[in-house]
């Protein structure tokens, strides 16, 4: 008996192939009417092809009508990366795409096959999808993160505030018990100052950066490397013409002492569709 790789992966190959017709995993919608296959670039090497409606197409692979689930982080990561690579390939090919969220699987129902249901959906949503695609043409998403070094900033604040300098003096010249009280007061004051400064910086950065981009989402800040603290985490939609403005603004921020900038992109517009 000849054992192909396919046969090994699917001992019930016949049964699976019949059930495969039940679902279509959707990667993205693009403004193209090419009936084509992008080859075996999908999740787990599945063949990705276009389902066309008018001048729109959805890139899909045939699958069983069940969501992807795994307890293995490596497997899951490979799926996510494959999803992204298909979206990116379509994005590079056609210039604008609407990525679907991971695990969007359309199934048969209402007396129609999955692929027919997909066509009906493309038809029903045509105007909305077309409008979104047009609005996203020539634009890319960038992740922008600004962090600071809190110890450095705190040091600067303590140096420049007359109140705090006085307290520092107090700590040095007083007996231990009193010095401890001064230390407590100083730390409380510094904490408040830092929070106020962070809020100010956040507003200022948001305001400046939002003038260099087409659209903006504020994301939750997250923990960064030791000794740094994230002040601002943005997803930005940026047109080609405005990118140099954004880059210049970020260079300016990054050149400030104690400030760090991270720019991730260009990415398909995941956050703006």
């Amino acid at each position: 008996m000849e054992l192909s790789a396919e046969g090994l992966r699917h001992p019930l190959a016949g049964a699976v192939s019949a059930r495969q017709q039940a679902g279509r995993y959707i990667y993205c919608v693009a403004g193209a009417n090419e009936v084509l296959s992008l080859g075996s670039i999908g999740i787990e090497g599945r063949e990705v092809h276009a389902v066309v409606h008018n001048d729109l197409c959805a890139l899909v692979h045939d699958c069983v009508a069940q969501p992807y689930q795994s307890d293995d982080a490596q497997v899951a990561t490979a799926w996510v990366l494959a999803h992204h690579q298909v979206v990116e390939a379509a994005w590079h090919r056609w210039g604008a795409v609407l990525p679907l969220t991971f695990n969007t699987i359309i199934e048969a129902g209402d007396g129609r096959s999955a692929e027919e249901n997909l066509s009906v959906w493309l038809n029903t949503e045509y105007q909305v999808l077309r409008g979104k695609l047009d609005a996203l043409t020539g634009k890319a998403e960038y992740g922008v993160q600004v962090s600071w070094a809190p110890s450095l900033i705190a040091g600067k604040i303590a140096e420049t505030s007359p109140d705090m300098r006085e307290m520092e003096e107090g700590i040095r010249s007083r007996p231990r018990g009193i010095a401890y009280m001064y230390r407590q007061r100083l730390e409380s004051l510094l904490r408040k100052e830092m929070e106020a400064r962070a809020a100010e910086e956040f507003k200022e950065l948001y305001s400046r950066l939002s003038r260099c981009v087409d659209s903006i989402h504020v994301e939750k800040t997250r923990a960064v490397e030791e000794g740094r603290q994230m002040l601002l985490n943005l997803s930005c939609l940026v047109s080609l013409e405005r990118y140099p403005d954004l880059a210049a603004e970020l260079d300016r921020v990054g050149s400030r002492e104690g400030f760090f900038v991270r720019l991730a992109g260009p990415l398909p517009p995941y956050s703006f569709c």
Binding site: Q66, P99, L100, T101, E219, S235
Partner: peptide, 18 residues
């Protein structure tokens, strides 16, 4: 990528989605 692929992207609100 994880943040975006898992949490963002177009959502289809329809019965035909698993």
């Amino acid at each position: 990528l994880l943040d975006r692929v898992l949490d963002r992207g177009l959502l289809i609100n329809a019965d035909i989605i698993i």
